[in-house]
């Protein structure tokens, strides 16, 4: 496998773990960002490009790690320049934009991979393998839970720019719900946000009815500054149950003197088996070999469509129906219709 030539667009919160992943792959990386490009490049030994025009000739693919609302425009520009696209989730702010990105890539003959990194977290992979091996029988009730301190950057709370907690955080578990329990037919959601002394907080609580008849609930919190990152799931089937709670993981115990730990926005991962590095390696291998990765562009469109249904239900207060076949939503122009 040759070393990829990568344009890393953006230098914000998630860029560090992507940069580390690319470095692990021996990639030749050029960073382009409105802010922070030089600091990131210096840390990882990368180069920088001041403009996209300057970036294109130096790279074969781009990795977009900018705020959500800019994803589609940057992806379309890269596709127009003939570059493969890896894009942080959500693939775009709207499913219409996300579908446009996937359509443009198909037309241009380049690949698109939305970075649904939870598909590369080993606990979720192990659960999927166990379900597919029939170890818990037919999935009946699935529970997904994810929380952390609320992110600090303003755009995360700007619904127009980020879609808030639902498109930024919960989209991971919406994707997992379909990955592990099959397509979703109906969504009911509640959400809330508050200004607290330590900053803004938000929560969303979603009930999903799958086409199989299974039901899921998906719970997300962006909490106070001391709330540690944790995610968990339980998948109950008619022949068994799968359970994982990051807060109960016990592989290493470290207790150091000094100030108490605060919360954080990202999970701790095994640096030797980073899921971020694993997803970038999988995407690069898929590009090189022309094969499928664990995430396809259409999965990114579907996840945004599901998140839009969550937002629509939370706003309307009634359940929202979705097209049963995930492929249907890839080119649909609706965000699900209120009943």
């Amino acid at each position: 496998m040759s070393a990829p030539r990568v344009g890393l667009i953006g230098a914000g919160g998630i860029s560090g773990v992507h940069a580390a992943g690319w470095r692990a792959l021996g990639a030749d990386v050029v960073v382009h960002s409105e802010h922070g490009a030089h600091a990131l490049a210096d840390t990882f030994g990368f180069r920088t490009a001041d403009t996209l025009t300057e970036l294109w000739p130096q790279v074969d693919l781009v990795d977009i790690v900018t705020p959500t609302a800019t994803h589609a425009e940057l992806a379309l520009a890269a596709i127009a320049a003939g570059k493969h696209v890896i894009c942080e989730k959500p693939l775009a702010r709207t499913s219409v934009e996300a579908a446009a990105v996937v359509g443009a890539a198909e037309a241009a003959g380049v690949r698109v991979f939305p970075a649904h990194v939870v598909r590369y977290f080993p606990e979720y992979v192990a659960a999927r393998d166990a379900i597919r091996a029939g170890r818990i029988g037919t999935v009946a009730v699935a529970r997904f839970r994810r929380m952390s301190a609320a992110p600090k950057a303003d755009w995360f709370f700007d619904e127009a720019r980020s879609g808030g907690i639902v498109l930024d955080q919960m989209i991971h578990d919406l994707d997992q719900a379909e990955w592990l329990a099959g397509p979703v037919a109906r969504v009911f959601a509640r959400s809330t946000a508050k200004a607290g002394d330590g900053g803004r907080v938000a929560s969303a609580a979603v009930l999903l009815t799958h086409t199989s008849g299974a039901i899921s609930h998906v719970y997300g919190v962006w909490g106070h500054p001391g709330l540690r990152f944790t995610s968990s799931f339980e998948i109950a089937g008619d022949a068994g149950l799968l359970r994982y709670d990051m807060a109960r993981s016990d592989t290493v115990r470290v207790q150091l003197g000094g100030p108490a730990d605060a919360g954080g926005y990202l999970p701790a991962t095994d640096p030797s088996e980073s899921p971020y590095a694993a997803e970038l390696a999988d995407f690069w291998a898929a590009i090189e070999s022309g094969t499928q990765a664990s995430v396809a562009g259409t999965d990114g469109v579907r996840a945004v469509a599901l998140a839009e249904a969550v937002l629509a239900s939370a706003a309307s207060g009634v359940p929202v129906d979705l097209p049963a076949d995930p492929a249907d939503s890839a080119h649909s122009s609706t965000e699900g219709s209120p009943r």
Partner: peptide
């Protein structure tokens, strides 16, 4: 304005 979810499933396996 508090939102709450209650999961009441009989999902504990016999085993």
């Amino acid at each position: 304005g508090v939102i709450a979810t209650i999961d009441c499933s009989w999902s504990q396996p016999e085993s």
